[in-house]
Computed example of a mutant assay.
Amino acid sequence: MKKKVLVVDDSAFMRKLISDFISASEEMEVVGIARNGEDALVKIKKLSPDVITLDVEMPKMNGIEALKKIMSECPVPVVMLSSTTKEGAEETIKAVQYGAVDFIAKPSGTISLDLHKIQEEIVRKVYSASLVPISKLLGNPFSSSNYPEKRNRHKEMANPALKCEAAPQMNDKQNPALILIGTSTGGPRALQHVLTNLPSTLDAPVAIVQHMPPGFTKSLADRLNSLARITVKEAEHGEYLEKGTAYIAPGGFHMRIMNDESNLMVHLTKEEPLRNGHRPSVDVLFESAGNLGGCNTVAVVMTGMGSDGTEGLRKLKENGNVTAIAESHETCIVYGMPKSVIAAKLADEVVNVEGIGHSIMKYMR
């Protein structure tokens, strides 16, 4: 049976294009269209779609307000369509916060005449979202009320996840520690869980690849930085890694970690081709860490489509002292990347997302 799709956009042109793309798919059919958030709520209750495409920028009720109402009144998987402006990026990160499964960046603004360039991405992401159980999207793990305020970040909460009695100690002066994280669809929510469970005294840097297009990773880093007790930032080319700081690879750039004398340094490039359909790629990050020598590494693979990270982890394990953690099927929004790692027998632990921070800390002093 085909998945039922509701297309929501204030532009008739965009509604037509998106509907045509989805209707051309053998797995999906468009059962309705809506011009704004108010219209969408009525259509959802009437048509019971399996998934919705929702424009961020709309009159009457914008995409964010519509999403909040949808998730509270008639929850259904949602894929947001957004422009790549600074405001659009910030609103998109909010959308993920309020329960959107994924988002798609329009190639040239609110009304993109060249939307055909991303036809394959639209079909793939909308279909993937239609398979996500709504139970995994409910609740708001991003709420700042769930976490200590940034100004209190050095005052650690009484959290048993941060106690590491009898844990293997992997961090010492001769062998510094490095934490690597790779994720894709559903990643912002998963990163929220993990980074907010790491203490400000974390004795290692964190390097992160989150599959996102250019223009969105800065907003994600700023949002996570406002909640986590460690520092979270978008990585910059040539900067040295500092303990207690997480570096998110910028969209459109591969990120490698390299040795510069006794320091670990970020190397960014956008000249190399996509790997596994992505730039940044988790494989590229993991492979680079395998060339460092002397680092004790924790590598984490979380929710996402595809298998990015598996081959990189394989090479990392061949070349270094590595503990690999995969997110469990139970908490993954999309059980693709972790499933691939587990199937390849590369995972040392399989953990629900809420416990990944604790698992990381087992290997830290």
Rank of each mutant, 00 (worst) to 15 (best):
A40G: 10
T201I: 02
A324Y: 06
A158K: 14
E330Q: 14
H116P: 01
I64D: 06
E91C: 07
L47Q: 11
D203W: 01
V7A: 14
I208Y: 03
N259C: 10
S281V: 05
I356V: 05
M157V: 05
T269P: 12
S108Y: 01
I248Y: 11
K2L: 10
M58C: 11
A161L: 02
Y240P: 12
V334H: 00
E354F: 03
K3P: 14
P214C: 14
T245A: 13
N62C: 06
G187L: 00
H116N: 13
V298N: 10
S72H: 15
A235E: 11
E29I: 13
S135K: 14
N175Q: 08
P49Y: 06
G306C: 00
N146D: 08
E349D: 13
T85F: 07
E29D: 13
L41W: 05
D260N: 15
V31R: 09
I64Y: 02
E29M: 12
E318S: 03
K243S: 15
S112F: 04
S359N: 04
L47R: 13
K45A: 13
F142E: 03
E349H: 12
A66G: 05
G357W: 00
G238D: 10
C295R: 10
T183C: 07
M212I: 04
G312R: 00
Q174S: 15
L137Y: 05
D114G: 08
V353T: 02
D55E: 05
A105D: 06
L47I: 07
D55V: 06
N276H: 15
M212A: 08
I93L: 10
D308E: 03
V209D: 01
S108C: 04
G355K: 05
L54H: 10
P133G: 12
G88P: 14
D172A: 13
P199K: 08
G109T: 10
